[in-house]
Each structure stands twice: as structure tokens, then as C-alpha cells.
């Protein structure tokens, strides 16, 4: 079933993407076509098949908890769009 405009707007909001009306309509059609193609997975009998999240089975990789130097602050801040007094500045997140 094709996606509705409301679904596209809902996904865009979850993904925090500002889209133009034209983009919304284009993605509505393209995503619908891709999802229709992906529906072929519904044909497979997957009962009892475990999901594979990773190609190598690794668990709980840890390192000794020892203090070590991190990236220098000024090098990190050099890429920040806005900073002051050694801190990255962000617009208020609460009114």
C-alpha cells in the first residue's frame, strides 16, 4: 500500500528533516516503490530464524579503565559552528 502524505510527514519529523512539499511527494512515491519491492521478504518463512545484527559474533569488548589524553579541546572546538569560553554554544532547548 502506498504511503500517505501524513506518514511521510511523520517519518520526516522523526528524522528531523525539513522537506519541501515537492520532496514530500517525491519521497512518498519513491519510498512506496522501494517498500513494495521489499515486500518480497514477506514470502520467506522466517519462523525460528535468529536475526543477524553483525557479521562477527563479538560481545562485551572492554578496555582497562585508565585515564588517557583525549583530543585537545581547541581542535574539537575549531569545527564547532558556535562556541564561547571553551564550550559549544547551543540555542535554548527549553522555553
Amino acid at each position: 500500500m502506498p504511503l500517505s502524505l501524513q506518514q511521510v510527514e511523520h517519518i520526516a519529523e522523526l528524522a528531523k528533516l525539513a522537506l519541501t512539499d515537492e520532496e514530500k511527494e517525491r519521497y512518498r512515491l519513491q519510498l512506496s516503490a522501494i517498500l513494495e519491492y521489499a515486500d518480497m521478504l514477506q514470502r520467506l518463512d522466517l519462523d525460528g530464524v535468529p536475526p543477524m545484527s553483525h557479521a562477527v559474533a563479538l560481545t562485551n569488548i572492554t578496555r582497562p579503565d585508565e585515564p588517557a589524553a583525549s583530543s585537545p579541546r581547541d581542535e574539537i572546538l575549531a569545527n564547532a559552528p558556535d562556541h564561547k569560553d571553551g564550550l559549544i554554544r547551543v540555542r535554548p532547548i527549553l522555553e
Binding site: 521489499a38 521478504l41 520467506l44 522466517l46
Partner: peptide, 14 residues
């Protein structure tokens, strides 16, 4: 329906 099914399919491919 999508992500989990795709991950299970990945097991079959492996």
C-alpha cells in the same frame, strides 16, 4: 515487518 525480517533474512544469506 521490515527491519527484523531483513535481519533474519541476513542470517539465511550468511
Amino acid at each position: 515487518a521490515y527491519y527484523l525480517r531483513a535481519q533474519k533474512t541476513r542470517t539465511l544469506i550468511r
